[in-house]
């Protein structure tokens, strides 16, 4: 009668585990009773602080749902009008562009979009940027001291860096950089660049953090990444503990592309007023200072200083590329596929 005992033991275990779990309250829905529902594609560990402050200071009851930007965009597209979300806070412009293109975003007043530096809001006012990040070259000063003088992304094509350049092929910022490359060099020029890059056998990493690790450990001499990963690493470990350095490229170079994170209000929201309050809060001096200091990103409102030693945004390339142009992204991915850099 082993089996009986097993069954009863199993049931008892289930009941016990279940009871233990119920004792811990189980999953609670934080949008329950919330006025404003935000879908945040920006990571909880990056933005929870500022969203908590937002709720406190605007008096709006906020419920936040975190997931990846593009997963949330896909979810919002499936949900359509039935969505509970009022505001979409995205890590990159592409996801906002997808919603804008599907007609799911409510146009913002010029009074809102005018608050940010030119070029950091959607030209049609569908969404507005909240912070920005620059593409940079990370380098290991022992392996590639000359990188300190680099001005063009073409420098990474030098055969002496064969197998010594790290990049994150799946990263949205890398895709945006390739789009910038196409704008700067034309389709044929961009393809030629990518073919040479591929021939130089660059090393693939899963994300920017690992690219930085690779540069830091000397696995690679150079790495293509976003600026704030380095600042965060320095803030976390201290400048002495980080071997890697970064180089901001010339302002006209596609390798100095600026990417933005931003917000859009979902069409059909019954919380338009609260949503606008939230958008304005994210553009407020306090929130902009938060992005400048806590996440080491660029503020998108003029006149905000950062505790980090960031080169002024004005010295970097002004994004002349419509980052939310999806047809363009599709062409970029097709080109990467063709060259074999995915």
């Amino acid at each position: 009668m082993h089996v009986r005992r097993i069954l009863s033991a199993s049931l008892a275990a289930i009941a016990l585990l279940g009871a233990a779990a119920c004792g811990s309250d189980g999953p609670t829905d934080t949008t329950e009773g919330a006025d404003l529902v935000i879908y945040s594609g920006r990571s909880e560990s990056l933005v929870k602080g500022i969203l908590d402050d937002l709720a406190k200071e605007t008096g709006v009851k906020v419920g936040v749902r975190y997931a990846g930007s593009s997963e949330l965009a896909a979810q919002l597209l499936e949900e359509g009008e039935a969505t509970k979300a009022d505001l979409f806070f995205s890590q990159d412009a592409g996801a906002l562009g997808a919603l804008a293109q599907a007609g799911r975003l409510e146009a913002l007043d010029a009074a809102v979009t005018d608050r940010v530096i030119d070029g950091f809001a959607d030209p049609n006012g569908q969404w507005v940027g909240t912070s920005a990040r620059a593409r940079v070259i990370g380098y290991n000063p022992t392996l590639a001291p000359e990188a300190e003088q680099m001005t063009s992304i073409d420098a990474v094509l030098d055969p002496k860096y064969k197998g010594k350049v790290g990049y994150a092929p799946a990263n949205a910022s890398f895709h945006a950089f390739v789009t910038a490359l196409r704008v700067a060099k034309g389709e044929d020029g961009a393809k030629e660049w990518l073919t040479k890059f591929k021939a130089n056998e660059p090393r693939k990493y899963d994300n920017n953090i690992l690219v930085l690790d690779g540069v830091d450990k000397g696995e690679v001499a150079l790495g293509l990444l976003n600026h704030y990963y380095w600042y965060e690493r320095v803030a976390e470990k201290g400048a002495d503990a980080v071997t890697a350095r970064i180089r901001f490229l010339g302002s006209d170079d596609p390798g100095a592309l600026i990417n933005v994170a931003g917000v859009g209000i979902l069409k059909g929201t019954d919380q338009k007023e609260s949503a606008l309050k939230a958008v304005n809060y994210l553009l407020s001096e306090k929130a902009q200072k938060y992005f400048a200091d806590e996440t080491a990103e660029y503020p998108v409102v003029a006149g905000i200083a950062s505790k980090h030693d960031l080169p002024p945004l004005a010295d970097l390339e002004k994004s002349s590329i419509d980052l939310n142009k999806l047809d363009s992204l599709e062409t970029t991915l097709a080109m990467l596929n063709e060259v074999g850099l995915t």
Binding site: G26, T28, T30, T31, S43, G63, V64, R65, E71, E236
Partner: peptide, 21 residues
């Protein structure tokens, strides 16, 4: 995608942390 908003499992917390650091 389907969890109640604000509910975190070990897998989602793990995902949150690997996303940034």
């Amino acid at each position: 995608l389907l969890r109640p908003t604000g509910a975190n499992t070990l897998a989602t917390s793990l995902w949150t942390e690997t996303g940034v650091a």
